[in-house]
């Protein structure tokens, strides 16, 4: 078994914490993981992309090839479209619906939505609403992990354990809010 994910978003949106949640869950399940991160200049409010590879056998490389990703998981709809070449014909395009507009030429939101639908692979998640509901706007990322998790070869309990570990230092309320968002994201 091998499962390749392209994570997409804008620098500062927490792409790394989404990757960490899934990666830690996979490792708790005894799977091998490779996770490539983005640091430095690219991180400053620009488009960022991270590769996450999960497998039950050795993973040679850090990068996912074109036409090879089982999933694109994006924190934002425009970024979801940017890396489509990586998505397998039968892959999933899981994206948050709320746009992150920090460029003057951000395309029409309806147009983006129609292009996501046109892939036939789209799973659009209102992560913002879920986060609000959970009582913590920052939990939107874990809502996205939740939405992705129904397709991942990682059990729910392992990802929840990973989320607990991630927020352990922030106290019980934050953990609960994030778990709540994660579960709501699973739908």
């Amino acid at each position: 078994m091998k499962y390749d994910i392209i994570l997409a978003g804008v620098g500062g949106q927490g792409v790394l914490s989404v990757a960490a949640g899934i990666a830690t869950g996979a490792m708790l399940q005894g799977l091998q993981v490779r996770q490539s991160e983005v640091h430095g200049m690219a991180q400053r409010g620009g488009a960022v992309m991270s590769h996450l590879r999960i497998s039950d056998t050795e993973i040679p490389g850090d990068l996912v090839g074109e036409g090879s990703a089982d999933m694109i998981l994006s924190m934002e709809p425009l970024e979801a479209l940017r890396y489509l070449a990586y998505l397998k014909p039968d892959g999933k395009l899981v994206t948050a619906s709320d746009p992150f507009i920090n460029i003057p030429n951000y395309p029409d939101e309806e147009l983006i939505k129609s292009k996501v639908d046109a892939t036939g692979a789209g799973v659009v998640v209102d992560a913002k609403a879920i986060a609000k509901e959970s009582g913590n706007l920052r939990a939107a990322n874990m809502a996205m992990v939740g939405a992705a998790s129904t397709f991942l070869p990682v059990e729910q309990k392992n990802i929840e354990k990973a989320i607990e570990n991630m927020f352990a230092s922030k106290g019980d309320t934050i953990i609960e809010q994030n778990i709540k968002a994660f579960r709501a994201g699973r739908g």
Partner: peptide, 27 residues
């Protein structure tokens, strides 16, 4: 590397939308 070894590219998805760049910027 696939290409340099003579292997064909794999099919992915595509969109006909022009995707504007999102360069890094000051906070």
């Amino acid at each position: 590397i696939r290409k340099s070894l003579g292997l064909a590219a794999k099919d992915g998805h595509a969109t006909d939308m022009d995707i504007p760049g999102r360069p890094p910027q000051l906070c």
